[in-house]
Amino acid sequence: MLDTAPAVRTAPDRDDPGPARPRRRFRPGPYLLILPTVAVIAVLMFWPIVQIGIMSFQKVGTRQLRGEPAEQVGLDNFRTIVDDPFFWQTLRHTVLFAVVAVVLTMVVGTLIGLLLNKLGRRMANVVAGGVLVAWATPPVTAAIIFSWLFGSTGGLVNWTLDKLPDALVGGGWDDHNWFATPLSTYTVLTICVVWQACPFVAVSVLAGLKSVPSELYEAARVDGSSAWRSFWSITVPLLKPIFLLLIVMSIIWDFKVFTQLFIMSGLANRDAFNLSLYAYSEAFGSLNPKLGMGSAIAVVLTLLLLVVTAVYVRVMVRQGETR
């Protein structure tokens, strides 16, 4: 990236005549250019975050939607949540899903990235193109396609499992309902999300691998190092920043997964809720909307992600992304 800094940086004040002249003339240009964006982000992102914070201490229901002032309830919303075993169940779902999905995404994505790096150019382009198709699929359609693949009648997965020897996979797959229990719902969700997310990891890892000088690997091979050893001693340390970034982004994406779960399992299936679905359902899911409760759950989700975000920003700043 071109560094335009020297051209506009003011010269050192060698011949500064004194305090009468300001050291640098204020130029409104750049501020005017970013003003619309700052306004949009302030109104559409930062103010709503403040609002969730305020509302999490309020009761906001049907009467408030009609225009009555909100009722201050202090920590009541949070107390209700913490005392409710259902909240802990959704939190468990959220965390377990994120852990499994992130690990799988990283491992599968990295392996695909390594493979793309080993393939010839033509083959690599074909495979990369195919992998990108998965990435490009809209979340709503991805969820619907996987619901179809795992469908109980006519679904391809059940058919395949039914044809496989019973000794291997057990019997009775014929019209197995994958969306009957949270565990199997999340299995399908995990496959769907990992399918969509690992291309991004693969392509990023590939971009990173291309930047590692091949002499390093040759030298290691001459010294008798195995491929496994080379991966852990050369690739991983050199690509550490990009791995860190990918892990953080995956955690954030998987923690707040909503659309796919909403389509696959829906608001009626409370057993399979995660935190975002729980918050949404409290706020909008019934005839008795509890927007304050929903906000409190959203606050918990945001706080959890804030920790991860802090790591992300630190990495980005260290990488010089804000220079």
Binding site: I41, M45, Q51, M55, F258, A279, L291, S295, R323
Partner: peptide, 27 residues
């Protein structure tokens, strides 16, 4: 504030948008 602005852009991308449904609905 150039760096502040850039950091803001990075942070904003990490905001769980699903959490903003509730306040934006009311606004």
């Amino acid at each position: 504030f150039r760096t502040t602005f850039l950091i803001m852009l990075l942070v904003v991308q990490m905001v769980p948008l699903e959490a903003l449904v509730i306040p934006l609905f009311l606004d």
